[in-house]
Structures are given as C-alpha cells and as structure tokens.
Nucleic acid binder design. Structure first.
Lengths: 223, 223
DNA sequence: GACTCTCGGATCGTATACGATCCATCGAAA
DNA sequence: TTTCGATGGATCGTATACGATCCGAGAGTC
C-alpha cells in the first residue's frame, strides 16, 4: 500500500504551486501547523518541504519565527533578470544549430498568440506572462545543456513568484517584446547569424525588460 | 538556553563540509540513522539537512532507499563547467570596472602562488584546486550581482564535490591556466579592453579546462 | 543449476509529544 | 505618558515511536 508520492513530496508540490501562482503572495507567512492541517499531514513532512523551498530561494525561514514567501526588492529583481538575460542568451546560442523546425514553429505560434494580446485588455497579465515564459522555454529547451535548462526554469520560477512582472510590466512593452521575439526567430531561421551576435541580441532582449520596468525612474546602468 | 545554530543547521554544515572535502565521496551512501548517531542528534534534523543538500544538487535521495552523494558523469561534468564558463565570463565583465586595486593585487598574489605549484609535486592537488577556486572567486566577487556570485559559488561546490578536477586535471594544464590568468589580469588592469572581449576570453579560459580534461579522447564540440 | 518465493534486517516515512523560543499584550512603575 | 518587565499564546525544534518499504539471503521447487 503505497501512494505514488511521499507526503513530503506532495506537500512540496502543493506549496510550490501556490507560491508560483500567487495564492501565497510575496511576504506571506507560511505557518507549518496550519499547512499541515490544511493538507492533512503532520508537520514533519511540511518542514521537509519548506526546507527544499528554502534551498530553492522561494521562501525564507527564520528560526523560531517561521517561513515567509520571498520578496524581491527592485535591485534584487533586476539582478535576477540580468541572470536570466545571461543564461537565456547563451541558451539561444547553443540552441541555434540544434533547434528543430517543429520547435521553431511552436515558438512562432506562441509569439503570434502573444501579439493577439498586445492591444487587448490589460487584465490578462497572467496568461500573457505564461505565454511569454513558454515562448522562451520552447527555445531554450533545445540548448542541450541540462543544467542550463534547469537554472533557467528555476530563475523563471523565482521571477514569477515575485509577481513583479505580473504587476508592473508596462502595457507598451509587450508590443516591443513581440517584435524582438520575431526578430530572434528570423535570426535563427536564417542560419547565417554569428553565434556571438545571436547571443548578444537575445541577452539585450531580456535586459530591455529591466529598462522597461525601470521606466524613467532611475538612470539605466547595465554593464 | 540556545545554541547559536539549530541542529538541522549544524548537521547541514557538517555533511556539506564532508562532501566538499571528499570525506564523503561521489556515490557514497548517506544513512540517516548512522549520521544521526555520529552527530548525536535524532534523525529528524538529519532528514532536513539532507533535503537541503538534495535541493542544492549535492546529494540524490531515493524514497525508501536513501541518500547518495551525487556522481557526475563526463557529460554532466562538462555541462556544469560550461555553465561556470558562462557565469564566470559575465562576472568578469561586470567586475571589470568595479574591481579594487586591492582585489587585483590579491588575485595576482594567488596566481603567483599557483605558479609556484606548477612544476612541483603532483600530490598537492587539493591545495592547487583551492587556490585556483579562490583566484576566480576573488575576481567574480566584485561583479556586484548577488545571485551571480551565489550561483558561481554553488557551481564550484558541485564541481569540487565531483572530485573530477581534483583527480583528472592534467599536470600540464596548470601552467597554461596560470598564464591565462595573468593575461586576464592584464586585460583588466589596462582598462581599455572592450567588455565583450574580456567576457569572451574569460569564458574561453574555463572552456579550456574541458578541452584539457577531454584530452584527445573525443572530438571537441563546444558551441 | 536456475528460478521463484518467503523472510528478516536495514532503512526510510510520518505521527505524536513536549520542551524551547519568540513576541504581542498588558500592567506597573517612573 | 512613556518605559520596562512579566505573562501567555502561537509557533517552532527535536526526540521518540512505530509502521511501511526495500532488498538481499536463503529455502524450496522445477
């Protein structure tokens, strides 16, 4: 008599899911006993799940106080997105000569779906964010480096959990992003763009998100 | 009446230290109850510690079977070093205009110490590895991006734990590495090397480690 | 001799129990 | 009124207990 998942594993997935979808928002307290009661397990597997989430930088745990969903201030958020730009740019470089026509087509389809949202109502941020993330993942999944893909997934998780993009992406940025995506797809299809150039452009595309969010508040000082 | 560290924390540090220094080698089993007895705690905090190490990719845990120190096959090792090359290259780019003369001097001193080992006995791999890691850390610590530094530290941990470098770095590689380090320091000091160029050279320096370890066994296929 | 089955020890998985710590609240003293 | 210290509830921290699972060893069968 064994369930497929250990309790600690299913608790881990539940909490993680709730953090990524915003059910547990940034800064929210995670009380072990309350979660245990809610998920109908004892506090022990909940503690294990929280430890994993702590190691993944999704929650912060303070001794004798408890766990909280991580919060990102502006600087931390920008540094994370900068990491994303770095990894995504390199992943695109690696994917350039490995990517299948099917994956390229899928990416194009996703970007077209994004474009359909560009003029639409601003209350569908959740769906836009999911499409955007999936567009990038469809491409970087072809980079053929397991750790690169894992790191990118993890970075996106942290960025999603912070709700910064979801709440502050300026509406006008979406149109530019979609155009940049198209340009990246063109570069890959052409097969004649030097790797350095493709990596540079992909990196810049992600860095543009930082500039867009900063707006005119602070001087841009990237690199 | 409180110790500075919770038991789970001190257990975590103990096990981690043993993995990084090779006391627990790759593939070695970590039996919870044995570790608990050894460190004089109950199995519960040991389990928490193992969960963290699992999330950090230092150990793998299999349900109802137990934990093992992670093993890296050649391909996995190369992919990790490739990540290291990517992050380290970018960190150097960011550090270029931030690095202090003191840090530069320290790096030079470390590299000189490395050179002193270049012709010496081959049985001091441990010390050479530590110096080499520290040389790079002294530079990338100036990159002013917290997550970049954390990721680099974590990558070095995993690479150290795999014992691949320690056991298979060809002796002749050290001399070349030391020369490349000098060249990187020169580039930073000159203050006139374009960021792209510095990043490219730093990245290549790390990739050279892969080529050196591969030897002539397999065709080199980077990027 | 090879295969299967059963059994038992090793090990993990989780619940429960209870002590330790923190912190918000409230009352007393300055 | 402000400050300080006491108090109690909320919450974490860890030990213990015991059931569940795995896996290897040995017996039994073909």
């Amino acid at each position: 008599m064994s369930s497929l998942l250990s309790k600690h594993e299913s608790v881990y997935r539940s909490i993680r899911e709730r953090i990524l979808t915003g059910v547990y928002g940034p800064g929210e307290r995670l009380v072990l006993s309350a979660i245990a009661r809610d998920l109908d397990v004892s506090p022990v597997p909940v503690r294990e799940a929280i430890r994993r989430l702590e190691a993944e930088n999704l929650v912060t745990f303070e001794r004798n106080v408890g766990a909280r969903v991580n919060t990102l201030d502006d600087e931390a958020w920008e540094q994370l997105v900068e990491m994303l730009a770095l990894l995504d740019g390199y992943a695109m470089r690696r994917a350039q000569c490995r990517i299948t026509p099917a994956a390229l087509g899928e990416a194009q389809r996703l970007n077209d779906a994004l474009r359909a949202h560009a003029g639409g109502p601003a209350d569908q941020h959740g769906e836009v964010m999911a499409l955007h993330r999936l567009f990038h993942r469809t491409l970087y999944a072809n980079s053929d480096n397991r750790y690169l893909v894992e790191s990118l997934d993890s970075l996106w998780d942290r960025i999603d959990a912070s709700r910064v993009l979801a709440s502050r992406w300026p509406a006008h940025r979406l149109a530019s992003a979609v155009d940049e995506h198209d340009e990246l797809l063109r570069m890959i299809r052409s097969g004649e763009v030097p790797p350095d150039e493709l990596e540079r452009c992909t990196r810049q595309h992600s860095l543009n998100a930082i500039i867009a969010i900063r707006g005119r508040k602070t001087p841009v000082r990237l690199q």
